[in-house]
Design a protein around this nucleic acid. Structure first.
Length: 407
DNA sequence: TCTGGGGTCCTAGGACCC
DNA sequence: TCTGGGGTCCTAGGACCC
């Protein structure tokens, strides 16, 4: 008895939601972008894809390829809401659901499919319901494991449904390039090519010792992947995060120390606030810097104990900054905390709350005292955070990964 | 007119300890 | 008279994903 896994993947999710919300956008090439001036295409409608517009392209490039493209600034609230509603649809068919990202979910229907007339019937029901209630298309892949279910949905896109049964898998993988597999990117593809391995079938037949030599511990896994085998279970319950971070490409490159520090404070507050909201504190603080030429690096430091206090995060981030001799202006700054621990909120709750609030104000005051010409107000920060409206496909509907900051 | 932001996992090398 | 070896913690960086 094989498992039956469904991969449900929304087609051009953000763009579809926008087209649904605004009928004028329907049938037209649109691209969902971020709010800043140096933003990129996050999602593009299928009409825009025809012109070669890709995710990650800057808007000028997209415009050049597709002069009539319509840019829409993403609205995470909308996608958040739709995603939550989608989860409700899925949960009618099984309790074993992994919300993998904002637009993708895995459903294990091994023990429930017979209640609904089979896996394909479930897939079709979901497609129909999603279309009816949200006006958007999705693609369903069905297979004995996540790896193959994901492949099935990739291949069936858009608006498709594909079922890879155990007996189909070998022929599917026969001439399939290895990079089509989830988890094989450009680097592994290149290194496999060095061994003369181009297709999944070749990967599945390659000597385990050869793969082990070249790739170490993942060698075995790669071979299994080439055979369409995958043992990764669904992650049904929300796991604790390992890190919490924010980064920001600045409107323009800066070298002014005051400006850099002000941005680091802002990022520290965004990180601290999210950590406090969900009751986590981190023992490591990292600072990421990107130069105009795109060289990017991260420096981290370990603290005596975990913290989620803005001012402490800020202090350590600045401590790191002080060890770096900047060779150029700064394009992007990032702050994150890791080695997270759950906060003992029974103890921290009331007593520490005011202490934390004070520390936040202190941080702001400190910056303002020092750099009167770059006035920082707490309210202005909060507003900016709302507007920055980070739309990350890594978003999850619950818990700390909900990056959306609500008032 | 250049190229976003949120993550996870793995590896390699050095410090330190027994 | 060359310089064991295991374990853990730490930092930096790469690969991959949506």
């Amino acid at each position: 008895m094989h498992n039956i896994i469904l991969c449900i993947d929304m087609d051009a999710f953000f763009a579809s939601v926008e087209q649904q919300a605004n009928p004028k956008l329907r049938g037209k090439p649109i691209a969902v972008i971020g709010s800043g001036g140096r933003t990129v295409v996050t999602t593009r409608s299928y009409e825009a894809r025809k012109f070669g517009v890709k995710t990650g392209m800057n808007i000028y490039e997209a415009k050049k390829l597709c002069p009539h493209i319509i840019f829409v600034v993403g609205d995470s609230e909308k996608y958040t809401h739709t995603c939550k509603e989608l989860s409700k649809v899925y949960s009618r068919f099984t309790p074993d659901i992994e919300i993998y990202s904002i637009d993708e979910a895995f459903l294990d229907v091994t023990t429930t499919h017979h209640l609904f007339g089979g896996a394909e019937a479930i897939g079709l029901s979901i497609k129909k319901e999603v279309k009816k209630r949200f006006g958007i298309n999705c693609t369903v892949g069905i297979a004995p494991n996540i790896l193959m279910a994901k492949l099935a949905s990739d291949i069936a896109k858009p608006d498709g449904l594909r079922w890879f049964k155990e007996e189909d898998i070998q022929s599917v993988l026969k001439n399939l390039p290895v990079k089509e597999l989830w988890g094989i990117g450009p680097s592994i593809e290149r290194r496999l090519a060095e061994l003369g391995i181009k297709t999944c079938a070749e990967l599945g037949e390659a000597p385990a010792s050869l793969l082990r030599n070249k790739f170490g511990i993942i060698g075995e896994t790669l071979k299994l992947m080439g055979q369409g085998i995958c043992h990764r279970p669904l992650i049904v319950k929300d796991e604790d995060p390992k890190s919490i971070g924010h980064s920001m490409t600045l409107p323009r490159d800066i070298s002014n120390r005051k400006q850099i520090e002000a941005q680091v404070l802002k990022l520290s507050e965004m990180v601290g606030r999210r950590a406090r909201k969900y009751g986590f504190a981190g023992k490591k603080v990292s600072l990421t810097i990107r130069y105009p030429d795109f060289e990017t690096f991260t420096r981290q430091t370990t603290l005596p104990g975990p913290t989620n206090i803005t001012h402490e995060i800020y202090r350590h981030a600045i401590g790191i900054l002080n060890t770096i001799r900047l060779r150029d202006k700064v394009r992007l700054l990032g702050v994150s905390i890791s080695q997270l621990k759950k906060e003992d909120n029974a103890q921290m709750a009331l007593f520490d709350y005011t202490a934390k609030e004070k520390s936040l104000l202190h941080a702001v005051d400190a910056v303002n005292d020092k750099y009167g010409d770059f006035t920082v107000t707490w309210a202005s920060y909060l507003e900016q955070d709302e507007q920055s409206g980070v739309i990350s496909p890594a978003w999850r509907p619950s818990g700390v990964r909900n990056v959306t900051v609500k008032k």
